[in-house]
């Protein structure tokens, strides 16, 4: 019996509405157990609390009620064992690619030679050789994404928290980055995989990557269903498998009503 590396128990998060009015319930009574080494993807309509859930796990905010336990301990603040990749990358604009990637080890007091070496390895891993001295604004969207990925990996986090990491690139780049991400995670069957919480709007992507897909509903934000994806790995070979298409259909059926309602509310 494996213990949950991450446990959300009755997690509720409300935000005070900025201009009076009622409070916004971003998450309501969310229970979730994540096993070690599991790849979990999270889908759901806009505003259902996906980013909120991630930021609670990261430790950027505290739940209003319930608890978030990481390795059995309540999450009180961010920590380097939980790496975060932000949707807008949040790269430090005043640091070069190299400077961004080595910031984590630098913050943890790793010596210069060692962190340089580690950063070089990662730069090679994500294919950014030759761009070490570029500033983020001098990179393409896909390159920024790789840089953010390498920065997250530099501390060897045991948990990867990724908020729509591939949303802002074109389809070809996204497919390539999906494959790379899987490879880095150890899709080919490496012994020690990190635990991944991966928020996405792409249902195909969610199913392709995941061991389980968490489908969320909104108002209030809660987990509607969890779909097991029992497809063999490596997944790159499964892109056109009928079993994958069927699962995509199932997830889509689960969120269609929510999505339709979300659009109706937004246009009213």
């Amino acid at each position: 019996m494996t213990v949950a590396v991450l446990r959300l128990a009755g997690v509720t998060k409300t935000f005070r509405a900025p201009r009076g009015g009622g409070d916004v319930v971003a998450l309501s009574g969310v229970d979730l157990d994540v096993r070690e080494g599991e790849f979990l993807t999270v889908v759901g309509p806009s505003g259902c609390g996906k980013s909120t859930m991630l930021s609670l796990v990261a430790g950027f905010a505290q739940p209003t009620a319930g608890e978030v336990l990481f390795q059995g301990q309540p999450v009180l603040e961010p920590g380097p064992e939980r790496g975060v990749m932000f949707q807008d990358y949040a790269l430090f604009p005043w640091r070069t690619v190299m400077g961004n990637i080595e910031f984590g080890p630098y913050a943890l007091g790793v010596g210069k030679a060692e962190r340089r070496g580690r950063a070089r390895e990662l730069i090679q891993l994500v294919g950014l050789e030759g761009f070490e001295d570029r500033y983020p604004h001098e990179l393409s969207g896909g390159m920024r994404q790789r840089c953010a990925l390498a920065r997250m990996l530099a501390n060897n986090p045991t948990m990867w928290l990724m908020d729509e990491p591939l949303a802002a690139v074109d389809l070809q780049t996204r497919i390539i980055l999906q494959d790379e991400l899987l490879r880095l995670w150890g899709d080919g069957g490496s012994a020690k995989r990190s635990t991944v919480l991966f928020v996405t709007h792409g249902i195909d992507e969610a199913v392709l990557l995941a061991d389980r897909v968490v489908v969320m509903a909104r108002r209030p934000g809660r987990i509607k269903a969890i779909v097991d994806v029992n497809l063999p790995r490596p997944r790159a070979a499964q892109r056109s498998s009928p079993a994958l298409a069927e699962l995509v259909g199932r997830v889509w059926d689960l969120i269609r009503d929510e999505a339709v309602r979300a659009i109706a509310e937004e246009t009213n």
Binding site: S55, A58, G59, F60, E77, P78, G79, P80, R82, G83, V84, F86, D88, A90, L91, F92, F103, G104, A107, L108, R151, A154, N155
Partner: peptide, 22 residues
């Protein structure tokens, strides 16, 4: 940008490092 501060903290930066480096 709050996101940059959060990024730094998630990478293990101490409060002092957040001030001086972010």
């Amino acid at each position: 940008d709050r996101g940059l501060i959060n990024a730094g903290r998630a990478l293990g930066a101490s409060r002092r490092l957040v001030v001086t480096n972010i």
